[in-house]
């Protein structure tokens, strides 16, 4: 192992090493582990009946369903978009290519509330399309389409960003070989390209889904936060918490925390499987 011979060489005493480990772990404990343990303790303290009661609550179930429904629309849309974009950027050179790469990253760097504001200015009653939407009696803001648009916006770049570097790395010789042998564009894509980038796609879909199901700010602005109607799971958590229904808030929180945990475990497995690790970015 490469790491084995380099460890422990630059700290004289083991005291220094253990001191550094202690400080690092204390920081992580205060910031991450203690808060999560507190969440678990609160849920356990509430007992099974409280948990079951909270999880069968009508507003909670509606919020779950809305969150799943939103992800079911937003994640496939962003996956198709991400694949198209990654392919265009990795396989073509055209003017404005660098600009396109920057543009795609934009949703990561805009505050979610500003994203919500943009959608209100576009689809709201006083917005650009407000009059038109009212005329055809189609509501975007304070209803499901707005929630989906907001969610799709904030989770847009993941698949594109994960797949692009892989496509660039594998090059196009295999695809060209397939074409020479008479494969059509779609055949080449399904039988040659997709098998090469499948881990990247999965990784991107996983991150897209985690972000889509957990989004708060952007959805909060456009949803109107009507309990049981336009309330996603994160909004439900805030709502019940502010109304001092803490047991419900903790129960719903543990559901989303479990989702986060599953996401991390699958991500770890994917990384081990593919030996591929993504770079940190803003969101």
């Amino acid at each position: 192992m490469k790491t084995k011979d380099r460890k422990d060489r630059y700290v004289d005493s083991p005291i220094g090493k253990y001191l550094l480990i202690f400080i690092a772990l204390s920081f992580l404990a205060v910031m991450i582990y203690i808060p999560l343990m507190a969440l678990l303790q609160e849920v356990i303290k509430g007992g099974w009946s409280t948990l079951i009661g909270a999880l069968t609550d009508r507003n909670f179930r509606n919020a779950c369903w809305l969150t799943v429904l939103t992800a079911l629309v937003a994640v496939p849309l962003n996956t198709v978009f991400g694949l198209c974009t990654a392919w265009i950027i990795a396989r073509h050179r055209f003017p404005g290519r660098t600009f396109l790469i920057t543009l795609i990253d934009l949703p990561f760097s805009i505050s979610p509330v500003v994203v919500g504001l943009m959608l209100v200015l576009l689809y709201g009653r006083q917005g650009w399309l407000g009059g038109f939407l009212e005329a055809i009696n189609f509501r975007v803001i304070f209803s499901l389409p707005g929630i989906i648009l907001a969610t799709a916006f904030v989770s847009m770049p993941f698949v594109a960003r994960e797949v692009m570097p892989i496509l660039e790395e594998i090059g196009k010789s295999e695809e060209e070989a397939a074409k020479t042998l008479g494969a059509s564009g779609w055949q080449t894509f399904w039988y040659v390209t997709v098998p090469n980038i499948r881990w990247g796609i999965l990784y991107g879909v996983l991150l897209t889904n985690a972000r889509a199901m957990g989004e708060f700010g952007a959805v909060s602005v456009v949803s109107g936060n009507i309990g049981g109607k336009t309330q996603t799971l994160p909004l439900f958590i805030e709502d019940v918490y502010l109304n001092y229904q803490t047991a419900q808030a903790f129960a719903a929180s543990i559901v989303l925390a479990l989702l986060a945990l599953v996401t991390l475990v699958v991500k770890e497995l994917l990384e081990r499987r593919s030996g591929y690790k993504s770079k940190p970015r803003i969101h």
Binding site: P35, L36, A210, M213, F216, L235, A249, F250, L256, A257
Partner: peptide
């Protein structure tokens, strides 16, 4: 990975 609303509730709680 943790949704920010959950982070808010959990940090507020402790």
């Amino acid at each position: 990975a943790l949704p920010t609303a959950v982070a808010g509730v959990v940090l507020t709680a402790i």
